[in-house]
Design a protein around this nucleic acid. Structure first.
Length: 657
DNA sequence: TTATCCGGCGTTTTT
DNA sequence: CGCCGGATAA
């Protein structure tokens, strides 16, 4: 392995001595490369790969890093334990569930299941009734989750976020308690439980803490600015036996405040460790100077932070462009034409990306891309594994693995005509609590759904022996489920082929349990690429959140208008607007060379506040015409023509309407 | 208890 | 607008 390709600061981080180390790494400064080299270096120094824990923000990031380490030091690097906090927590909790009074075979619920359970508890406790409006189930879960992730009381969360329910703190608390009891009784955890319970384990159980932290002789955490209090606590406790904790991050790129992430974690980190080493990476290898000039200007418009300057190693390039368009249609037109023009100029579509604030911002563009036969893959927004029919199939698999999974029964029983919520819950609870957890269809003789239940019971019996064969099991389940789909969904045909992805995922697992754990935490990749046969020049569409850590030669940024980006829900909130600025910073710094920002005059506003034309994020830089070039899109003339009389004529007539 | 209808409220970003 | 949930009818 060669350290020659590293600069001085990077080398200092890579070869750092034991102890705590904070690496402040601006966008594009070789953060990933530094982490990769650090892991490789540790292995070279004789640290066993299995004693290195690399906590990353996404599974994608973990895989990429391990691939690169493996390329440097060989396949033994695969033994490095890596993944998200949630995935790591899952593994640790499986081993120590007993210690915490949980069954080791617990399962993990996704957001929707968790909401449903909260909904059931809510109606049981009678908060659904009464003339006073009460929060809906999703809101209740959100409040509970925020309270956990930010270490705030329910009352504080309500006052901050949902003042309209400020008087109902007792109700939220009561639901929260009953919800927690039920989760433990059913052996299911939600996402928050994974973190809470791991933190509890490490904090309150010295034996477990000693064991876990001595297994992990070096703990490395990526994207530390996006951790919340619980995650920071876990990282610190996990390294308590040896103190070898390296965290890497950039406070300017903190964009997960909505889920409890706190920049304070990274800013206050040095206070925790008197002997801490701090390294700053400031040379940017990714972007041209004009891109960075804009990024710096964006950051200057933020109230707080270090206002650091990024320096380009790459040198000059074209100015970023702000393109004024009339509306979303005009925007889609402009972006498509620009993508094609760049392709003609030698930038393949695969080296371009379209980024946006919210997943739905790209809907219109997606239809245009299909028309133009530009292949694309979209990241962010609704996940494949969240589609109702995928969850249906997985619920069946869960029943094979664990017939006491009450939420899975609830879901499956809901498919049958004449069988509603009450009955489904009753049957589910009965089975869950029975000595022998099987579906006794016979007792429903005479009911409309008797035959269907009988069929289900038989199928489950026939699948039971397949527990050890994930692929056969999943295939068998899917085959049966396919037959039922038309009676569940009007658009069953469209959904059918999605199911093919499941056996492919199952192939990678030795047991059903491992398969199910993985799909609960890691998003399932869609098996069908959104592209015509044989074409691998694929455009990336991504939310800004999902674009983190990635880069493209050309970046197109959509919907720069109040109510679009920045989001309508941030406009009247200073700290939320700060996060929007950091989001813009992240988006801008994804570009290596070409950066195009489209600013529609009219957006469909769906927000609570009145939204006018213009984009407050761009206001601070609007007058800086040495930083950006301003263009107007003219649909008839092409993407980058100067403003035409015709355009203004149409604008005026639009306004009059 | 279930299916259906209708009114009103919230609408983002992810594990 | 979509979807949640309350109200009503079968």
């Amino acid at each position: 392995m060669s350290l020659d390709e590293l600069n001085e600061a990077q080398r200092a981080a890579v070869q750092s001595r034991d102890g705590a180390h904070l690496v402040v790494a601006g966008a594009g400064t070789g953060k990933t490369r530094t982490l990769v080299h650090r892991v490789a270096w540790l292995i070279e120094q004789g640290v066993a790969p299995g004693q290195i824990v690399l906590l990353t923000f996404t599974r994608r990031a973990a895989e990429e890093m391990l691939d690169r380490v493996a390329a440097q030091v060989g396949p033994e690097a695969r033994a490095v334990r890596g993944g998200t906090f949630h995935a790591f927590a899952l593994g640790a909790l499986r081993r120590f569930a007993d210690t915490l009074g949980w069954t080791p075979s617990f399962t993990v619920m996704d957001r929707e299941d968790a909401e449903d359970m909260v909904g059931l508890v809510r109606s049981e406790l009678g908060y659904a009734e009464g003339k006073q409006k009460f929060a809906r189930k999703g809101t209740v879960l959100d409040v509970l989750s925020r309270s956990v992730n930010t270490h705030k009381t329910i009352q504080e969360v309500l006052s901050d976020q949902y003042p309209q329910y400020g008087a109902f703190a007792d109700a939220f608390e009561a639901i929260g308690r009953r919800y927690a009891e039920r989760k433990q009784a059913h052996g299911v955890m939600d996402y928050d439980d994974l973190l809470v319970l791991l933190a509890t384990l490490l904090r309150d159980h010295p034996e477990a803490r000693r064991k876990l932290s001595s297994e992990a002789r070096h703990v490395l955490v990526d994207e530390f600015q996006d951790t919340n209090r619980l995650q920071a606590e876990i990282a610190v406790l996990l390294s308590s036996a040896h103190g070898n904790l390296m965290v890497v991050g950039d406070e300017a790129q903190s964009i997960y405040g909505f889920r409890g992430a706190s920049v304070r974690n990274i800013l206050d980190f040095p206070k925790l460790f008197p002997d801490i080493q701090i390294t700053k990476l400031e040379e940017n290898y990714r972007s041209t100077q004009p891109v960075l000039d804009l990024a710096n200007a964006v950051l200057d418009s933020a109230r707080e932070g270090f206002h650091k300057r990024l320096r380009a190693v790459r040198g000059e390039g074209p100015l970023p462009r702000i393109v004024d368009v009339i509306d979303e249609h005009d925007q889609a037109d402009a972006v498509v034409k620009r993508i094609l023009a760049l392709r003609a100029a030698g930038v393949p579509v695969s080296k371009q990306a379209v980024l946006f604030r919210s997943a739905y911002h790209s809907f219109l563009l997606e239809t245009r891309l299909v028309e133009e036969e530009i292949a694309f893959k979209k990241f962010g927004g609704m996940r494949f594994g969240e589609a109702a029919h995928i969850k249906d199939a997985l619920a069946l698999v869960r029943l094979v693995a664990n017939p006491r999974d009450a939420m899975a029964w609830f879901r499956v029983l809901g498919w049958f005509e004449g069988l509603g919520e009450k009955t489904a819950q009753k049957i589910g609870d009965a089975i869950t609590n029975a000595d022998d957890p099987v579906l006794d269809a016979a007792q429903f003789k005479g009911r409309k759904y008797h035959a269907a239940l009988l069929d289900l019971a038989n199928q489950l019996d026939s699948w039971a022996p397949l527990v050890m064969e994930p692929v056969s099991c999943v295939e068998a389940v899917i085959a049966w489920y396919r037959e039922r789909m038309p009676s569940i969904y009007d658009d069953a045909k469209r959904r059918l082929k999605d199911l093919d992805a499941l056996p492919l995922v199952a192939e990678r697992h030795q047991s059903i349990e491992s398969f199910l754990s993985t799909v609960a935490i890691d998003p399932i990749e869609d098996a069908k690429p959104d592209r015509p046969e044989g074409d691998d020049d694929i455009l990336t569409l991504s939310t800004i959140h999902s674009s983190k850590g990635l880069e493209w030669e050309a970046v197109h940024l959509l919907q720069l208008a109040d109510g679009g980006f920045p989001s309508a829900w941030s406009l009247d909130d200073d700290s939320a607007m700060e996060e929007e600025i950091r989001l813009l910073y992240v988006a801008v710094t994804r570009a290596r060379r070409e950066l195009w920002l489209t600013r529609p005059h009219f957006v469909r506003t769906r927000g609570p506040t009145g939204v006018g034309p213009g984009c407050s994020l761009l206001e601070p830089i609007e007058h800086l015409d040495d930083l950006v070039e301003f263009l107007r899109h003219d649909p008839e003339a092409g993407a980058d023509s100067a403003a035409s009389e015709d355009l203004f004529r149409r604008l005026r007539s639009f306004l009059d309407l």
